[in-house]
Design a protein around this nucleic acid. Structure first.
Lengths: 336, 336
DNA sequence: TCGTCCACCGGAAACGTTTTCGAACCGAGG
DNA sequence: CCTCGGTTCGAAAACGTTTCCGGTGGACGA
């Protein structure tokens, strides 16, 4: 039988008789034949592959951060349902590669990736702009890029931050501070935006020293907490823009002899796994990280399969989950 | 100029004059041309891609577990240095795929992956045997498979377990129990092997009920701990075969009114991130998860690039890191 | 009996490389 | 002037698909 016939049965075309279809399938099973993705890619100019660029700097390499891990899980499932696979570009130290193009875009178009999701890279990275200027669909996670075939998905960071301070205020706090994320990142910036907005709306002032920036990792928050505790009028509550930093903040408070939440209330952001395991268990704003990955994947495939509609920016809802680091249970116990 | 000339300059052959090489490079830059990976794969029969199959069952989907995340990081760097990229097969619920082959092997050979690393799948999975019977290089992580072009890498789980009970015994404990990992997994089995070996060598007996099996996740360990606490003579120390389970064990002990380590000493295994964040901070056996990934990647590429040598099985060293869950500091304080 | 249409299938071009083979050219040596 | 070796380059086959186009055969109506 001819190659075209085989191709037809494997692609599910209907103009092939049931008997020959069976015969082809039979023989294919016997030889355990699998069609070559490379050849198919070559002629169809589509690879059914989604490129993933993921990079968070050298000191905290890649997907070490739980956020990206969870997103990756969601992404994998999201695109998997739709018939795509993931192409994870191996980030390398500059210069250490075996003479491969360093540019992600370059790598992606070499492999003819049908779309790209980018996360963990700096918004200012020239690679990002190269990506959006290219004509391949791109979905970013937590990076504020939009374009003709480019969009991004993120949690409702502003709303989440407002939720956090409203909760703290509801517990009676007025001296509320924040340990912010890097203002160069979208979530970092938005969470302090939300913090400020809610403080203003509540009529609260933000004294100097009540807003210090960390880098999303515990050590930076430890230092930040120490500096706040050294203030003449230290805060009684702090909104920490990431759980990872919150554990650093708690550690600093505790080793300064304070007890959380009695002396200092803390609410975090993310609801990563450790949040419920630290002591005290963290009150935090949960974002659906797997959901972000899922949404990113589905949005990307949507964009791939009809490229003419410009993709919407997706923002996912967050929710407050109260545990013990804010003193809400204690308050509830007393009051009710 | 001809295609062959272009090919020659891009592959670094020397039989092309410096002037034409420059001209080609110049024009390529102007058109920003990137050679097609698909076409190259088609003719060279190599894709420079490493397939990753990763699956841990439906209730704990995929790379949710920190172990695999860390391994993936190492893997990515290991193969990245050597000029390969990662192809992450999107695991899907059975039946939900858009008519794609369900077999990993099938998917791998479709994409012409040069090698495969497999982890998180059950040793009894028929896919695993299909993989080792195929003629494509395979490295497994924590799965006991060997073959002509197949091997695996794992930590020294036996040695680690011995380290743990020796440490507990050195602290004066004699009633030592274990919450084991699934005996169907290599690390689960080996860690209880090590536990038993060291107990025997120390002349300690293992009473009935002192060895109960969990599934590497906290809830199972919580139940296991409760059952041990209900014993007529409960243990004074327990070696928990995974940190994730150790936090469950601690939780169970604490909510039974016991204090760790005063009433019950615990040592874990893995040294995942949460280990130092729980309270009390976990004494545990550290395995180098990123290192496992690195080793797996390098071994796989080695196997790809000279397929005639049969690959060695790699076992990586572990180390005891003592924190507070075993009472060692307290002991040290008193004694010294 | 003959033309027509439809269901089914094969031929062949195209996709973009790598690689082998041989051709053209140039300088040098006889 | 002819031959020879070496350098540099082009032609063409091959890789394994998809897709378009055309061809065959049978059924069917006229």
């Amino acid at each position: 039988m001819s190659v075209s016939t085989v191709s037809r049965v494997f692609n599910g075309y209907d103009d092939v008789s049931p008997t020959t279809r069976e015969r082809v399938l039979e023989i294919a099973r016997k030889l355990d034949y699998a069609p070559s993705a490379a050849a198919r890619t070559l002629v169809k100019q589509r690879s059914q592959l989604i490129g993933v660029v993921l990079f968070t700097g050298y000191e905290h390499p890649d997907i070490h951060h739980p956020f990206f891990q969870e997103v990756l899980v969601g992404l994998k499932h999201g695109i998997g349902e739709l018939g795509y696979d993931l192409l994870l570009f191996a980030t390398e130290q500059p210069g250490s590669s075996r003479g491969r193009p360093h540019s992600y875009l370059r790598r992606a178009e070499q492999h003819r990736a049908d779309g790209i999701v980018v996360m963990g890279v700096d918004r200012a990275d020239p690679e990002v702009d190269k990506l959006v200027r290219s004509d391949i669909p791109v979905i970013a996670v937590d990076i504020d890029v939009v374009g003709d075939h480019t969009s991004f998905v993120a949690s409702d960071n502003i709303g989440g931050a407002r939720l956090a301070v409203r909760h703290l205020h509801g517990l009676g706090h007025t001296r509320i501070a924040t340990i912010a994320g890097p203002s160069a990142t979208k979530p970092g910036a938005d969470r302090t935006l939300g913090f400020r907005a809610e403080m203003r709306e509540l009529g609260l002032t933000i004294p100097p020293g009540y807003e210090v920036e960390g880098d999303f990792y515990p050590e930076s928050a430890e230092r930040a907490m120490q500096s706040m505790l050294a203030l003449p009028e230290p805060p009684t509550a702090v909104f920490v823009a990431a759980d990872m930093m919150a554990v650093g903040a708690i550690r600093a408070a505790q080793s300064a002899g304070l007890s959380v939440p009695e002396d200092l209330a803390i609410v975090g952001f993310d609801d990563i796994r450790v949040a419920e395991l630290v002591s005290p268990p963290l009150t935090t704003i949960r974002q659906d990280m797997v959901g972000i990955g899922l949404a990113a994947g589905r949005a990307l495939v949507e964009q791939i399969e009809n490229p003419d509609v410009t993709p919407p920016v997706l923002t996912l809802p967050v929710e407050l989950v109260v545990r013990e680091s804010c003193g809400a249970q204690a308050a509830a116990l007393i009051n009710g």
